[in-house]
Amino acid sequence: MKPGSRFARLFPAIPYLWLILFFLIPFAIVLRMALSDADTAIPPYSPHFQGVSELGAFLSALDLENFRLIASDDLYWRSYLTSLRIAALTTLAALAIGYPLAYAMAAAPRRWQGVLIVLVILPFWTSFLIRVYAWIGILRPDGLLDSALLWLGLTAEPLRLLNTEAAVLIGMVYSYLPFMVLPLFASLQKLDRTLLEAAADLGATPSRAFLSVTLPLSLPGILAGSALVFIPAIGEFVIPDLLGGPDTTMIGKALWTEFFSNRDWPLASAVAVVLLVVLVLPLMLLQRARGAAA
């Protein structure tokens, strides 16, 4: 296909315009909204910025009130910190569970690997909500986990994990595990196994060979998997809402509450803007990991 033909030139234009309209412009509106006052009118906001002609007036009346509120209110600070902590713990736990799994998958005979990948992806295709709901049945008081542990005599009394941070963590790791396993598997599968043989020939113990050969070579997979888990985890709403309790208010839930319950659209937008700023660093890391993998 010649790039010069008119038909070919249409290819980028349609999705490009679509994304500008439905992805880029909405972000500009969020930013504008974040700089507006809450108002009881419907839609509930009074914008400070109507158009380019008012830019001068807008800049002089720039309203950072919503951001000041976020900075001063304990609730938001704690939500951001809780989100960061839970997302970081989720990433670490997913790595701890996902790495051995991905390693075993990569070491498995090649004819099994296709089936194993489908098995990892399959839960990801079933509804997110269903997977979280399944854990409610397991973690609730008198649920499957407590019943099983008591029956086995491993615990003296029920753990009552539902509505705790532990429950949120379990739900998060469970939901995001495939995002960790797939990039890890991709980088471990590409690993040249003769390098390990060479290391063994040179007298390295298996653990030494793992630390100085396998681990560094799978670093792009570790980075990509961690970013793919960390980024969506930080803004997660459904899991902390259904499995968490009052102590586990994550920022996604704070945004949701601000929007749907308090109907404070400007404040919800400001929360979103700050969340985006928090995500810039991990997003750049992801971009670099993708670059390294390519």
């Binding site: 972000f27 509106i29 969506p232 997660e236």
Partner: peptide, 17 residues
């Protein structure tokens, strides 16, 4: 970007549009 963007942000921004 929409692949990793937290859903609350995508949802909010589209609604405002």
């Amino acid at each position: 970007a929409p692949l990793v963007m937290p859903e609350v942000i995508t949802g909010l921004s589209l609604l405002l549009l």
